[in-house]
Design a protein around this nucleic acid. Structure first.
Length: 574
RNA sequence: GCCCCCAUAGCUCAACGGAUAGAGCAUCUGUCUUCUAAACAGAAUAUAGAGGUUCGAUUCCUCUUGGGGGUACCA
């Protein structure tokens, strides 16, 4: 690697001149390509040896050798700027990409390590909306990134299929459902169930006693009352089928499903044992509580007075179950920022109960999704459902495609519009920094222009168009001569292509898919600039043409790999 | 009340403590007989306020102001 070579050269000179072993030699990109290809800033080194940065830069640069790879060294104030041999760089990078193909950018960071990513975790009382979508997409992209970094990743989903919110939907259906079914109403199951959940919300305003009835229903469920269980099973299946259909539409898969109805009692035993050991205590009314030993966190009840379990009881049990079953190195919870305090409490409890793996639990937070009309609340119907949005996007994409290709076959139209719709939606959501709240703008989310998923897909399609027309007889991975690539845009592309492995590695380490998303935009913009300035097929010489074909084919590979990590499918034609 | 997060262009977002703060939308102006105009080129506009740390702060610290979230024997 050229960058590593440079770093080693610098390290050597620093050692020789100042007798310092500097582990951190960081090379940056100069703000302008005219300044150089890589840059070393001498500030921190200057501080260590108590000299002015300018002096250090000057002195170091005089000791550095120019060779076949480093062609020029220019000092600008405290910066040492390096120019490297582009032909060598092109050859190394492009051949590497051609050889590795789909594996270009893969790293071994997590080799031998096992990590679980729990995400999505929907309730079975309504369809998934935009808030879930962000969670789904982050969880999926993160899992992809970690897999690409060599981790063994287990994607898990905890289905919240029990509790008062489920009982509410059940009660409404029992009272006003008239034995309708999703089939009879020609509705997706989760939407069908969601309607009854909302209906409950409406009716309970007129008649507050309905809440007591729902409570009773939940108690009957807990007593395993036959009729109640049957009703629950029925609604639950409908809702779950709807949820699964959405995952299929999104192309998201899970390795392990946990159902709250099956594990909600787990954790009880752990707590009773902890009580015996004196790790927690019983209150006068019988409730079991733990002192979190921290003023900010306070105290937390672990089991109700009647020793039935509450939500955290099951999360304690589930955490243990995960580590017992999978011997995890890391357990990541993808959960919104509104649950920061809750997960802090959970992890603290696990630590206080002296589970050795407590420190390996990690909460990956992200900001909420806001609509222009304000906060999303399923109960009030102020939501944008995922399926609905995808349908809208698909229709828009179809209109776009038809305006370009009126005679396209129905099947192809369907296929393409789905990829484009999902590409737009996924990229729109994933490009936000996690800690940022997402202000969902309907118009921008359905846009296919500018910084969007379809822009990336379009660029990929453009490249495929050229490659298909090129019909080159020389296999691209055998092209050897890149000395003809001299344009600024070509070199810009080279730099970006060689950066990809670092970007992926960092995005994985920092659990930050947005970083990859922004990199891909940068690469794509750079390509389109090149596209408008340089012709590939009409290049002035065969040498340039062949070299450019390899270059753009490499861009396509990197783009495809990057999109794949974000869960977005490229298109050969648009 | 207490705790946490956020504040960058008219709008939505970028920017390992480093060189001239970048994109996209919207607005205005150009570019399709030439590899797909879902594109490209150009114009214009920004770090909420006050201190501090630092050779250097959009980035770190404190306060102020303005948004959001949390503070259950709910899930």
């Amino acid at each position: 690697m050229l960058k590593q070579y440079l770093i080693n050269q610098i390290k050597q000179v620093i050692k020789q001149e100042y007798h310092l072993l500097s582990r951190e030699v960081i090379l940056t990109n100069p703000p302008d390509a005219q300044l150089g290809d890589w840059s070393f800033a001498c500030f921190s080194l200057a501080k260590k040896i108590k000299q002015s940065p300018d002096k250090v830069a000057q002195h170091l640069s005089e000791q550095l050798q120019i060779d076949k790879i480093i062609t020029k060294i220019v000092v600008v104030g405290p910066y040492i700027n390096f120019f490297v041999n582009k032909t060598v760089w092109f050859k190394y990078t492009l051949r590497l990409i051609q050889q590795k193909g789909k594996d270009y950018g893969r790293n071994q960071q997590g080799l031998g390590k096992r990590v679980m990513v729990e995400f999505s975790s929907p309730n079975t009382n309504k369809p998934q909306h935009l808030g879930h979508l962000r969670n789904d997409l982050i969880g999926d992209a993160l899992s992809n990134l970690l897999t690409f970094s060599g981790y063994q990743v287990i994607r898990s989903n905890l289905i919240n299929d029990r509790g008062i919110h489920i009982a509410k939907a059940m009660l409404a259906y029992q009272k006003w459902g008239e034995n309708k079914t999703p089939t009879s109403e020609k509705m997706k199951g989760d939407y069908f169930v969601g309607d009854y959940y909302r209906l409950f919300g409406k009716k309970v305003k007129e008649n507050p006693h309905l809440l007591d009835e729902a409570q009773d229903l939940l108690k009957k469920w807990e007593r395993r009352d036959n009729q109640t269980i049957a009703l629950w099973q029925k609604l639950n299946d409908w809702a779950l089928n709807g949820l699964i259909a959405t995952y299929q539409e999104l192309g998201i898969k899970f390795d392990r499903w946990y159902f709250e109805s099956e594990i909600y009692q787990s954790g009880k035993k752990i707590i009773l044992q902890a009580l015996k050991k004196g790790l927690c205590y019983q209150q006068a009314d019988g409730a079991i509580e733990i002192d979190l030993g921290d003023e900010k966190l306070g105290k937390k009840v672990l089991l109700r007075a009647d020793h039935t379990s509450i939500y955290i009881t099951q999360d304690i049990g589930l955490a243990k179950l995960k580590f017992d079953q999978y011997n995890l190195d890391k357990s990541i919870y993808v959960v919104g920022s509104e649950q920061i305090y809750y997960l802090q409490v959970l992890f603290k409890i696990l630590k206080l109960l002296s589970f050795p793996w407590a420190e390996q639990c990690y909460h990956l937070t992200y900001g909420m999704v806001n609509l222009p009309s304000g906060k999303m609340k399923s109960r009030e119907g102020n939501v944008v459902e995922i399926d609905t949005l995808i349908q809208e996007l698909k229709q828009l994409a179809q209109a776009e495609i038809l305006s370009r290709e009126p005679n396209i076959s129905g099947e192809e139209l369907n296929k393409r519009s789905k990829k484009i719709a999902l590409g737009a939606l996924k990229f729109y959501v994933l490009k936000f920094t996690l800690s940022q709240e997402v202000n969902f703008k309907p118009k921008e989310s359905i846009s296919f222009e500018g910084n969007t998923g379809p822009y990336l897909q379009y660029t990929y399609a453009r490249i495929q168009g050229i490659l298909n027309k090129a019909k080159t007889d020389e296999p691209l991975d055998l092209v050897d001569d890149f000395s003809a690539l001299k344009e600024e845009t070509e070199i810009q592309l080279l730099k970006l292509l060689s950066q990809f492995p670092e970007v992926v590695k960092q995005a994985g380490e920092e659990y930050n898919p947005a970083q990859l998303a922004n990199y891909l935009l940068c690469l794509t913009q750079s390509f389109n600039k090149f596209y408008h300035q340089c012709s590939v097929l009409q290049a002035s010489t065969k040498q340039i043409r062949q070299a450019r074909l390899v270059l753009i084919s490499s861009v396509a590979i990197v783009l495809e790999n990057g999109l794949h990590l974000l869960g977005i499918k490229p298109l050969d034609q648009m």
